[in-house]
Amino acid sequence: MTAIRVALAGAGNCAWSFTQFAALAQADPDTRLPGLMCHTVGGYRLADVRVVAAFDVDAAKVGRPLAEAFTAPAIAATAFTELGGDRNAPVLPAPVLDGLTGPLGSVVQAATAARDATPEDVAKALVEHDVDVLVIALPTGASRAVRMFADAALAAGAAVVNCTPEELARDEDVSRRFADAGVVLLGDDLRSHLGATCLHTALIELMLSRGLELTSTYQLNVGGNTDFLNLADAGRSASKFTSKANALRAAGMTDVDGVAGPTGFIGHLGDSKVCFANVRAKSVLGSEVRIDIKLTVEDSPNAAGVIANAVRAAKTAADRGLSGKVDAPSPLLFKSPPRGLPESEARAAFLGFAS
């Protein structure tokens, strides 16, 4: 297979873990890596993915090769392996827009080149680097920046994977524009490989499959990376709560007292995320079943496994002549796709698409 040329909108923690995951695959293409659900998607291996450029606003990253940018102070994700051929991909300036609004502005200094950058610069760079897929991994709440990158990708003819909860694929106008232009759009809000939403929705589906009646549920998440710092601002986290609610409804939760979303920043946790979840239901004779769980994961590698699938799914969809939103792979990859499905159905739909 030919290489899938990927650009990263946001050279942060998730981008760092994803690039390392690709590097491991490139070093030994036939190895089945832990956490890689599908060795091939549409015939593409993870080893076929090449990160050819990234965009950021951080003065510690812009103008540096990718391997150096990932050593910036804002990076909390673990360095598991060295990068291979992607290490020298350039980190290009992106327009700041609303990317640093809120707490992030106190820990990230915008590069001068980013303050001067234009959307036209981004579109031109996507063309110059012959990008197949643009992965948007910007801070939650950066709706203007997310839309700008979507427009730039549309102008350049590059497929989009929207890892953020800002609505693109769910926005009918945006999806229609991508469809009319013949460009693939996957989203919204990346669903971690085995994260809080994945576990929570699986529990809901299990209870409903046994005929239980849900009565209440919650999912509370805390972490220590810049994503959680950003989400500590209620004005920035609103779309995340909406996205998680969409995921629970897709699992079958209706008319139930439920809350799910980020609830705190604890700096010393670093890239670790801790989820506390509770599900209550009525069972036989009105007896109660209650499940309390605590899940601890390293946040960014958990996202990398899904990005690895999403990038290959986007390229496969483009190869097949699809455009706009693509339903089959999306429910497994995203919390808030245009059409959600319970976990088991989402997995079956993805595997059918991937084969």
Rank of each mutant, 00 (worst) to 15 (best):
S323W: 11
G252E: 13
G264Q: 06
L295E: 10
G258P: 00
Y218Q: 10
V259F: 15
V311W: 00
F241I: 03
R249W: 10
P329Y: 09
I266V: 15
T242K: 09
V326C: 05
G223F: 11
A245G: 13
N278S: 14
A247D: 11
D271W: 00
R320G: 10
V274M: 11
G224L: 05
K244T: 06
D327L: 06
A318H: 11
L231I: 02
A318D: 03
G223W: 04
G267F: 04
N278D: 13
S330G: 08
A313Y: 03
S336Y: 08
C275M: 06
A232D: 08
P338E: 12
A308E: 07
V284K: 14
A318R: 02
S237C: 08
L231N: 01
V326F: 04
V311C: 08
A250R: 02
E343T: 15
R339Y: 12
F276M: 13
A314S: 14
F228E: 01
F334P: 05
A260Q: 01
V326Y: 01
L295G: 07
R249N: 10
V284W: 07
S330K: 10
V284Y: 10
P337G: 10
K273A: 14
G324T: 11
A232C: 13
S336L: 12
L341H: 14
R236K: 14
S272Y: 05
G264L: 09
F228N: 01
T316C: 14
E343G: 01
S243A: 15
G261V: 03
A234N: 09
G324I: 11
V256L: 12
C275Q: 06
D299R: 05
S336M: 10
P331E: 10
S336E: 14
V256C: 15
G223V: 08
F228L: 06
A281V: 13
S344V: 11
G340H: 06
L231S: 02
A247C: 12
L229K: 00
L248K: 01
I291M: 07
G224A: 06
D233V: 05
A310V: 12
P331K: 05
E288H: 07
A314N: 09
N309C: 14
V256P: 02
L333S: 04
P331R: 11
A260K: 00
A281T: 13
G224M: 08
G270Y: 01
S287T: 15
K240W: 04
I307N: 11
I307A: 02
S272T: 11
P338K: 11
T226N: 00
F276N: 08
V256A: 06
Q219H: 07
L248P: 04
D255T: 14
V279T: 15
T263N: 10
K294H: 01
Y218H: 14
G223Y: 02
K325C: 11
L295Y: 07
P262M: 05
G270V: 06
N221M: 13
S336A: 15
R236Q: 13
I307S: 09
A303G: 15
L220N: 09
T226G: 00
T263M: 11
